[in-house]
Design a binder for these strands. Structure first.
Lengths: 125, 125
DNA sequence: GCCCATTACGAAGTACGTAACGATA
DNA sequence: TATCGTTACGTACTTCGTAATGGGC
């Protein structure tokens, strides 16, 4: 089973392009970060970074993996926020995310009308 | 940060409606499973199950959480599979998921045409 | 000599299983 | 009494930080 922490570590290193700086941003040492990245690669059986001249750099596989990894982290963050929001709301709260254009197209308005009639808002990605 | 293992445990218990059976399916004991569920609830600050008469049953918050939890697990599984597929493929493989209707609408065909011209296929949920 | 990534090693935290407990039928 | 969920406790594993190692500039 995939570990979200490793994914977060991977994204940090990929974005920083540097293990040391990524470690600072994550508030951990270089050592465990380097190990977690290596472990992730071993568990997946993929080399995500090109190691050369004591530098790490995303390779083709790493770039492909990065896009989906970011999506997963965003999904996890939403789920966590959903949980916390469920705590505050009486029986649940209404959170509305929108995409540019969705408001003007009347999509959001229609969904809200339907919701008032007792309909259910479906989760839209 | 959310832990995928706890999410998987939660979904198992929610679907089984029973800690014991869920534990069997997960190949762990009842004890740690019960604790992980409680920890998840504590970390989120939400009660996901209604405890009554020595039984656990999803409450309203739990049901709302379950839907998104399943989505996250599916997303994680896709990411893991992507990683493993990147290992075998030369520089990456092409995997196509489709939704009923997308094929007949010509959406997939258009995307493939664009892809042949050197365009990029965007990830669609 | 300085910086960067990795490896070595000891300490702390966490998850597990077994066993005991409380409650329900 | 049998079953189910939770709590108690000891063990094993995993992750962390510090320190040492090996390569480039």
């Amino acid at each position: 089973m995939l570990d979200l922490r490793q994914i977060r570590y991977f994204v940090a290193v990929a974005e920083a392009g540097n293990v040391g700086r990524a470690a600072e941003q994550l508030h951990i040492s270089q050592s465990p970060l380097s190990r977690q990245i290596i472990q992730l690669e071993e568990q997946l059986g993929v080399t995500l970074f090109e190691r050369a001249k004591q530098r790490v750099h995303l390779n083709a596989e790493g770039r492909a993996f990065l896009a989906e990894a970011r999506a997963l982290l965003a999904n996890a963050a939403r789920l966590e926020e959903l949980g916390r929001s469920l705590a505050s709301g009486a029986t649940g709260s209404l959170a509305i995310g929108y995409v540019e254009g969705a408001v003007h197209s009347g999509l959001v308005a229609d969904m809200l009308k339907d919701f008032r009639r007792g309909g259910r808002i479906s989760i839209c990605n």
